[in-house]
Structure formats: structure tokens, C-alpha cells
Amino acid sequence: MSGNGNAAATAEENSPKMRVIRVGTRKSQLARIQTDSVVATLKASYPGLQFEIIAMSTTGDKILDTALSKIGEKSLFTKELEHALEKNEVDLVVHSLKDLPTVLPPGFTIGAICKRENPHDAVVFHPKFVGKTLETLPEKSVVGTSSLRRAAQLQRKFPHLEFRSIRGNLNTRLRKLDEQQEFSAIILATAGLQRMGWHNRVGQILHPEECMYAVGQGALGVEVRAKDQDILDLVGVLHDPETLLRCIAERAFLRHLEGGCSVPVAVHTAMKDGQLYLTGGVWSLDGSDSIQETMQATIHVPAQHEDGPEDDPQLVGITARNIPRGPQLAAQNLGISLANLLLSKGAKNILDVARQLNDAH
């Protein structure tokens, strides 16, 4: 009898209710805020589980004197976190989706994509230029951005401005803007500013005609071990179906173009009346040469937790077992079709030249 009692006690200790789920994140304040929001949602869904947040620095956090596009290494903000995932030191990792490459290392998958916040870019102005827009900034004003995508589009749109690289986390960039006289304004992701509670610093939100956004911008991705079915089931509740389908289309477009950090590629997606609209573009580094096109596809946005595919093969690095396969494939095909259209119009040449120029500098 006593033996059975011990077995029952052991089973209770090993039951999922007692389990601590370890969540990996970057150390920056924004990353911690984003991770806290994901953990809060998981806690609400699984009140019996405990969650421990483990923060670590990544290569991208450490190399702050070089433009991201020049470092010449993929997975700048993800490699150390993936290493911890691989060694079973954490069970899942919360990322900004735009930091996750469209091809993940073997053994990993994006197990959830959370509801997207505003994906557009924002302009934050130096205190002396508050009330201005990019259009009304004085001639030769210097605007800071760490992104080739932003610089290429904005140089084309605002030729009277000069664009220079600015690195560091959000706090560091804002301090550089406010305390030094080098920059009249800087460009940042609206979602990051909003998550930090800095709505009052948003001086201008850039519309798609001015600057399309990065693939996955404004959404959070939760990376897990691809074979860890328990954790895949656990994080599945975080999937937002519309965000998922938009981001599958965007990531398929980028992957098929073979774009990345070192080339200016941008997108804009919208879901309306059962249609998914995808606009994508590529630019030369100075913005003088560009190709942009829009395509659409009829896609039914499923309700969360309709029964999805059981075999769960990944699409552009994403596993969404609780979302039907048909809409996911339709979104992926839309991204591939748009990429093929741009490639047929000469996108590869623009991107190759951009890559060579970026590598040469």
C-alpha cells in the first residue's frame, strides 16, 4: 500500500501541473516587456503551470559599433537563445518575429505568432524639431536608422535628408537623439515604442507609400524545439490566425527572394473581405531603383483552434497545428507568387547589386 502511495506522490510531482516552463529572452527592456506579455497570456491559459524567465545577451546586443547589415552573420539576435533551447536550458524563446530568419536551424520551429501590433515605422524627432515631419525637416538634416530597408525607401522619398546608421537598443538610440546634436530624427518601429509606453515620442507614423515595413514587423514569434510536442501544444494558444497568415505570406515572399538583413526588402499586408493583399518591394541601397507589386488571394481566416493538420510540417519556419492547413498554404503560395513576379521584373539584379555594395563598404 505504502509503495503505491509513493508512486502516486511521484506521479503528482512529475505531472504537468508541477512543471516549471523556462522562457528565454534577450536582456533589453523591450525584450523583457514583450516576454512578460507572452508569459502573462500563458499564465492565464495555464494557471497550474509556473513560468521562469531567463534573460541573456546576444551577438546583436554586444556589437554596437557596426551596422547590422555589415556584421555579416545571420541570427544576430537569436543564436545564443537557440543555443540555450538546444541544450534544454529553456523550453521556449520569445523573439520579435522580424529577427527570426525565414529558414531556422534544424530542430527549431516557430510554435506561435502572437497578435500583431502596429507594424509601421515611426519617426521620433529631436526636441528642437518636435512638430515637424520628415518632409518639413531642414535641408541636409541627419536621420538615424539601423535599417537598409528604411534608408533606401526614405532616401527616395525625401532626397533633402541624409540617413546615417544608429545602433543600440531603444533606450540607447533615444538617448543619442536627445543628448547629442548629430541626429534631427530617428526611425523606429511603432510597436516597440508603444510597448515601452513611449507613445508621446511618436512624431509621425510612416504610411506604406512612404515606407513599407519589415517582414514580420510588429509581431512576436515564440520559438521552440520542433519535436517538443508538449510545448508546441502549450504555445499553440498564442497563435493569432490573421497575423499568422499575413506573416506566412510575408516570410514566403522574403524567403523566395532570398532577402535578408543586408538587402532592402519591404512588405505591406492587409486582410479585407476574405482577401489577403500582399505588397512587396525591393530597392537599391540608395533607393534610386525599385520594383513594387501587389497581389491578392482569397483566404478564409479560420477561428482559433479549428482542428489543424496533425502532421505539422513547417511552413517558412512556422508550425501551427491548430490552424487549418489550406489557408496557410494559400498564404505561402501568395508570397511565392509575388516573389516570382518581382524576380521576373529584375528584382534579383537589384538585390545582387545591393548585396555587393553593402559587402564592399
Score class of each variant (00 low, 15 high):
residue 20 V to R: 12
residue 20 V to Q: 12
residue 22 R to D: 05
residue 22 R to N: 10
residue 24 G to W: 01
residue 25 T to S: 11
residue 26 R to V: 01
residue 26 R to G: 00
residue 28 S to G: 11
residue 28 S to H: 00
residue 29 Q to I: 06
residue 33 I to D: 11
residue 35 T to K: 00
residue 36 D to M: 14
residue 36 D to Q: 15
residue 37 S to G: 08
residue 37 S to N: 14
residue 41 T to E: 12
residue 41 T to R: 11
residue 41 T to V: 09
residue 42 L to Y: 04
residue 42 L to N: 01
residue 43 K to A: 09
residue 45 S to M: 06
residue 45 S to Y: 13
residue 46 Y to I: 10
residue 48 G to P: 06
residue 52 E to L: 05
residue 53 I to K: 11
residue 54 I to L: 10
residue 54 I to M: 09
residue 54 I to V: 09
residue 54 I to K: 12
residue 57 S to G: 09
residue 58 T to M: 11
residue 60 G to Q: 08
residue 60 G to Y: 02
residue 61 D to C: 00
residue 62 K to D: 15
residue 64 L to M: 09
residue 67 A to K: 15
residue 68 L to C: 09
residue 69 S to R: 11
residue 70 K to C: 08
residue 73 E to V: 10
residue 73 E to T: 14
residue 74 K to I: 08
residue 75 S to P: 12
residue 75 S to Y: 00
residue 77 F to R: 01
residue 77 F to G: 02
residue 78 T to L: 10
residue 78 T to R: 03
residue 79 K to G: 12
residue 80 E to L: 06
residue 83 H to P: 06
residue 84 A to P: 07
residue 84 A to M: 14
residue 85 L to F: 04
residue 87 K to F: 09
residue 87 K to Q: 14
residue 87 K to M: 13
residue 88 N to T: 13
residue 92 L to I: 12
residue 92 L to K: 03
residue 93 V to T: 06
residue 94 V to C: 14
residue 94 V to L: 08
residue 94 V to Q: 05
residue 95 H to P: 01
residue 95 H to T: 14
residue 96 S to P: 04
residue 98 K to N: 07
residue 100 L to Q: 09
residue 100 L to F: 02
residue 101 P to H: 13
residue 102 T to V: 06
residue 103 V to N: 09
residue 104 L to Y: 08
residue 105 P to Y: 03
residue 106 P to I: 10
residue 107 G to Q: 15
residue 108 F to N: 09
residue 110 I to D: 04
residue 110 I to A: 01
residue 111 G to Q: 02
residue 112 A to W: 03
residue 113 I to W: 05
residue 114 C to N: 09
residue 115 K to Y: 06
residue 117 E to G: 11
residue 119 P to A: 12
residue 119 P to D: 04
residue 119 P to F: 10
residue 121 D to I: 02
residue 121 D to Q: 01
residue 123 V to Y: 03
residue 123 V to F: 04
residue 123 V to W: 01
residue 123 V to E: 01
residue 124 V to P: 03
residue 125 F to R: 03
residue 128 K to W: 10
residue 128 K to H: 11
residue 129 F to S: 07
residue 129 F to T: 11
residue 130 V to L: 09
residue 130 V to Q: 11
residue 131 G to T: 08
residue 131 G to K: 08
residue 131 G to L: 08
residue 133 T to A: 07
residue 133 T to H: 07
residue 135 E to W: 11
residue 136 T to Y: 11
residue 136 T to E: 11
residue 136 T to F: 08
residue 140 K to I: 07
residue 142 V to H: 10
residue 143 V to P: 03
residue 144 G to C: 08
residue 144 G to F: 01
residue 144 G to I: 02
residue 149 R to F: 07
residue 150 R to W: 04
residue 151 A to L: 11
residue 152 A to S: 07
residue 153 Q to C: 07
residue 154 L to V: 10
residue 155 Q to E: 10
residue 155 Q to M: 11
residue 156 R to C: 09
residue 157 K to R: 11
residue 162 E to K: 14
residue 162 E to N: 06
residue 163 F to Y: 11
residue 164 R to Q: 09
residue 165 S to L: 06
residue 168 G to F: 03
residue 170 L to V: 11
residue 171 N to H: 12
residue 172 T to W: 04
residue 175 R to D: 07
residue 177 L to V: 12
residue 177 L to S: 03
residue 177 L to T: 07
residue 178 D to I: 02
residue 179 E to T: 11
residue 179 E to M: 10
residue 181 Q to L: 09
residue 181 Q to P: 06
residue 181 Q to F: 10
residue 184 S to I: 12
residue 190 T to K: 10
residue 191 A to F: 03
residue 194 Q to N: 06
residue 195 R to Y: 10
residue 195 R to D: 01
residue 198 W to M: 15
residue 199 H to Y: 13
residue 200 N to W: 12
residue 203 G to E: 03
residue 206 L to P: 05
residue 208 P to N: 02
residue 208 P to S: 09
residue 210 E to R: 13
residue 212 M to P: 05
residue 214 A to I: 04
residue 218 G to E: 03
residue 219 A to K: 00
residue 219 A to T: 06
residue 223 E to Y: 03
residue 224 V to C: 13
residue 225 R to S: 08
residue 226 A to H: 12
residue 227 K to T: 07
residue 228 D to C: 12
residue 229 Q to M: 12
residue 230 D to R: 12
residue 232 L to T: 12
residue 232 L to R: 04
residue 235 V to M: 11
residue 236 G to W: 00
residue 237 V to M: 08
residue 240 D to V: 12
residue 240 D to R: 01
residue 241 P to T: 07
residue 243 T to N: 10
residue 243 T to L: 00
residue 245 L to W: 10
residue 245 L to K: 03
residue 246 R to D: 02
residue 247 C to A: 15
residue 247 C to G: 05
residue 247 C to M: 04
residue 247 C to Q: 00
residue 248 I to N: 06
residue 248 I to W: 05
residue 249 A to Y: 01
residue 251 R to N: 06
residue 254 L to W: 15
residue 255 R to A: 06
residue 256 H to T: 14
residue 256 H to S: 12
residue 258 E to K: 14
residue 258 E to P: 06
residue 259 G to T: 13
residue 260 G to R: 02
residue 262 S to L: 00
residue 262 S to V: 11
residue 262 S to E: 15
residue 264 P to T: 14
residue 265 V to G: 04
residue 267 V to W: 02
residue 267 V to C: 14
residue 268 H to C: 07
residue 269 T to C: 15
residue 270 A to F: 14
residue 271 M to V: 13
residue 275 Q to E: 07
residue 279 T to Q: 08
residue 279 T to V: 07
residue 280 G to I: 01
residue 280 G to E: 01
residue 281 G to I: 02
residue 282 V to P: 01
residue 283 W to G: 08
residue 285 L to K: 08
residue 286 D to A: 05
residue 287 G to K: 01
residue 287 G to T: 01
residue 287 G to A: 05
residue 288 S to N: 07
residue 290 S to I: 15
residue 291 I to Q: 12
residue 292 Q to C: 12
residue 293 E to W: 14
residue 294 T to S: 14
residue 296 Q to W: 07
residue 297 A to T: 12
residue 297 A to I: 00
residue 297 A to L: 05
residue 299 I to D: 13
residue 300 H to L: 12
residue 300 H to C: 13
residue 301 V to M: 05
residue 302 P to T: 14
residue 303 A to W: 01
residue 304 Q to P: 06
residue 305 H to S: 06
residue 309 P to I: 06
residue 309 P to T: 07
residue 310 E to T: 02
residue 311 D to H: 14
residue 312 D to G: 02
residue 312 D to R: 12
residue 313 P to K: 09
residue 313 P to L: 12
residue 314 Q to V: 11
residue 315 L to W: 10
residue 316 V to M: 01
residue 317 G to D: 04
residue 319 T to R: 01
residue 319 T to L: 02
residue 320 A to I: 01
residue 320 A to W: 14
residue 322 N to S: 07
residue 323 I to V: 11
residue 325 R to D: 12
residue 325 R to C: 07
residue 326 G to S: 11
residue 326 G to W: 10
residue 326 G to A: 15
residue 329 L to T: 14
residue 329 L to W: 05
residue 336 I to L: 05
residue 338 L to V: 03
residue 338 L to F: 02
residue 338 L to K: 06
residue 340 N to P: 01
residue 342 L to E: 03
residue 343 L to S: 06
residue 345 K to D: 05
residue 346 G to D: 04
residue 346 G to S: 03
residue 349 N to P: 10
residue 349 N to V: 09
residue 351 L to P: 09
residue 351 L to H: 12
residue 354 A to I: 00
residue 355 R to W: 15
residue 355 R to Y: 08
residue 357 L to H: 15
residue 360 A to M: 02
